[in-house]
C-alpha cells in the first residue's frame, strides 16, 4: 500500500483527521479559513467570467447563447461532486459515528441541491434558444432532475427526525442508496431517450471546445469548488454551535461574541 511508504505524511494525516473530529478545533479552523475561501472564490469567478463572457470567441453555431455554459457546466459538475462529498462524509459518519462527518454531509446537501437547481434553470434557459422549449427530456437534464429529488429526499428525511444526529445517520444512509441508484438512473434514462426520440442535440460536445473556452470553464469550476468550501465551512460552524450549544467551548464562544457585539 502506498500509505506505508510515507509514514510521516500518513501520521500527520491521521493526526489531522482526529483533530478535525474535535468540534472546537474544527470551529476555529473553519473560522480561520473562510475569508480565504471567499476571497479566492470571488477572484477566480471574476477571472473566469471575464474570460468566458468577454475573451472567449462566440460559437459559430450558437453565437453568444452558449456562454451560459460557464455557469451551467461548473454547476452540473458541482452537483455531482457535492453529492459524492455528501455520500463520502455520510459513510464516515455511519461507520465511525463521527459527529463532524455527519454535520458536513448534512450541510453539504442544501448546497448541492442549490447547484443542481442552478444547473436545471440554466439548462432550461439555454434550451429555449436551442430546442425552442423550456424543458426537454434530454438524458442529462432528466438525470439532474432526479438528482434534485435525491437531494430533496435527503434534506427532507434529515429534518423529519427530532434527533438531529439520528436524522443525519438516516439521511446519510439514503444518500448512500442514491450513490448506487444514480448511475442506474442515468443509464436507464439514456436508454429511454434512445427508445423514444433518437438523438437530441448534445448540450456539450467535448470535441468542439477550444482552449480559449476551456480555461475560463476550468477557472469557473475551481471557483465553484472554492464556493462550496466557503459555504460548507460557514454552515458547518453554525450547525456545530447548535449541536454543541450546551458545551463549555460553545458557551465561551457565545460569551465572547456577546461581549464583542
Amino acid at each position: 500500500m502506498n500509505v506505508h511508504s510515507s509514514p510521516t505524511l500518513w501520521n500527520r494525516l491521521v493526526l489531522w483527521y482526529h483533530q478535525m473530529g474535535s468540534p472546537p478545533y474544527f470551529y476555529a479552523f473553519a473560522g480561520r479559513w473562510r475569508p480565504w475561501f471567499i476571497a479566492a472564490t470571488l477572484i477566480t469567478a471574476a477571472i473566469g467570467l471575464y474570460g468566458g463572457l468577454l475573451l472567449a470567441p462566440p460559437d459559430y453555431q450558437q453565437g453568444d447563447a452558449y456562454r451560459i455554459i460557464f455557469i451551467h457546466v461548473p454547476c452540473a459538475w458541482m452537483s455531482l461532486f457535492t453529492y459524492a462529498f455528501m455520500a463520502g462524509c455520510g459513510l464516515v459518519g455511519l461507520v465511525w459515528r463521527v459527529k463532524l462527518a455527519e454535520i458536513l454531509a448534512m450541510e453539504a446537501a442544501p448546497i448541492g441541491a442549490a447547484f443542481t437547481f442552478v444547473t436545471l434553470v440554466t439548462g432550461s434557459l439555454w434550451g429555449k434558444p436551442m430546442w425552442g422549449a423550456w424543458w426537454t427530456w434530454d438524458a442529462r437534464l432528466t438525470s439532474e432532475l432526479v438528482l434534485l429529488f435525491l437531494y430533496l429526499g435527503v434534506i427532507g428525511l434529515y429534518h423529519a427526525f427530532e434527533d438531529t444526529r439520528q436524522g443525519a445517520r438516516a439521511a446519510a444512509f439514503l444518500a448512500l442508496i442514491g450513490v448506487v441508484n444514480l448511475p442506474i438512473v442515468h443509464y436507464s434514462v439514456v436508454w429511454w431517450n434512445t427508445l423514444h426520440q433518437g438523438t437530441t442535440v448534445q448540450l456539450f460536445g467535448p470535441s468542439r471546445i477550444t482552449w480559449s473556452m476551456l480555461w475560463p470553464l476550468l477557472t469557473m469550476a475551481l471557483s465553484t469548488h472554492l464556493y462550496l468550501g466557503w459555504s460548507l465551512l460557514g454552515r458547518a460552524r453554525v450547525a456545530l454551535l447548535e449541536l454543541e450549544g450546551g458545551k463549555d467551548w460553545a458557551r465561551a464562544i457565545a460569551l465572547k461574541e456577546a461581549s464583542r457585539g
Partner: peptide, 27 residues
C-alpha cells in the same frame, strides 16, 4: 424503514422513492 423513526412520512416517502423507481418505470 428509514422513516420509521419519524412521526409522519407521507409526502417524504414519495420524494425518497421517486429516484429509486425511475429505472423501474422506464424499463
Amino acid at each position: 424503514a428509514l422513516t420509521v423513526g419519524t412521526r409522519r412520512s407521507g409526502m417524504l416517502l414519495a420524494l425518497m422513492l421517486l429516484p429509486l423507481m425511475v429505472p423501474v418505470v422506464i424499463f
